[in-house]
């Protein structure tokens, strides 16, 4: 029990003292995770809408791959991104391995299928009569999608929160493609793994508080947005 209490006290001291390293790690984590989720949202929602609203040959196969992607183990994503960015790999000449860009790529790979899959599911559930009613009201193609996004707002924001949860919790791929380099690619999850392996539970607890606080704050904001009353 002592280990927990000591750890918590040290953690609080560390956070309150404004430790530079902790601040850097937190900043890098936010930068990486928010960039990854932004890319996944911007790319994933339109793809999910296309997949949910349209019928085309091979749609079921595409959905199967998207759904498999939703459960893609992060270390597998890390492995493929590493191979892609390896010096002799297809994108090796870009020199991105062991950079935050590589971590962002890995996080996009694990969060993108979640956003595509859940958006597609939300759009597939829309009553076809609602689609007809929107068309009959004289909506253009863009207006139609805008109205449908508002109608599926709860599900779409839930998809973004699920994707965000995945990137914030992700450690295996970030460790593999980022290398946990101090002052560069070290993020909260990789740093926690390292501190625990060194027996520095107080630091790990401090980092876990910060990680949970970040997750809480971002999710809180998204939930407020999700539950806000609609205006058409």
């Amino acid at each position: 029990m002592e280990i927990f209490i000591d750890g918590i006290i040290k953690a609080i001291k560390m956070i309150l003292s404004g430790d530079k390293e902790v601040f850097d790690i937190t900043y890098t984590t936010l930068q990486v995770c928010l960039t990854a989720i932004l890319i996944s949202t911007v790319v994933g929602i339109p793809l999910g809408v296309l997949l949910g609203l349209n019928s085309f040959p091979g749609k079921k196969i595409v959905l199967v791959f998207v759904n498999i992607g939703m459960g893609l183990p992060p270390v597998v994503a890390g492995l493929y991104i590493t191979m892609l960015l390896w010096r002799s790999g297809p994108l090796g000449n870009l020199g991105l391995l062991y950079t935050t860009h590589a971590i962002i790529m890995a996080q996009v790979l694990v969060s993108l299928p979640i956003i595509i899959g859940l958006t597609a599911a939300a759009f597939q559930q829309i009553d076809h009569k609602m689609l007809m009613q929107i068309k009959a009201l004289g909506a253009t193609g863009f207006q139609r999608i805008g109205l449908l996004l508002r109608e599926t707002k709860l599900a779409i924001l839930a998809a973004i929160m699920a994707g965000l949860g995945r990137v914030l919790a992700e450690v295996g791929a970030a460790m593999m493609v980022g290398g946990n380099i101090k002052g560069d690619t070290r993020i909260l999850t990789t740093s926690m793994v390292m501190e625990v392996s060194k027996g520095n539970f107080d630091v790990a607890i401090a980092l876990s508080f910060i990680l949970m606080s970040l997750a809480f704050m971002i999710t809180f904001l998204l939930t407020i947005l999700q539950q806000r009353k609609q205006r058409v």
Partner: peptide, 23 residues
């Protein structure tokens, strides 16, 4: 077109009636 199900949007009555004109 008005269908059997009213298919109103999750917003006020005013906004629903205004929708076609807003579009």
């Amino acid at each position: 077109v008005a269908l059997q199900q009213s298919l109103l949007f999750d917003t006020t009555v005013h906004n629903n009636v205004a929708l076609g004109l807003k579009l």
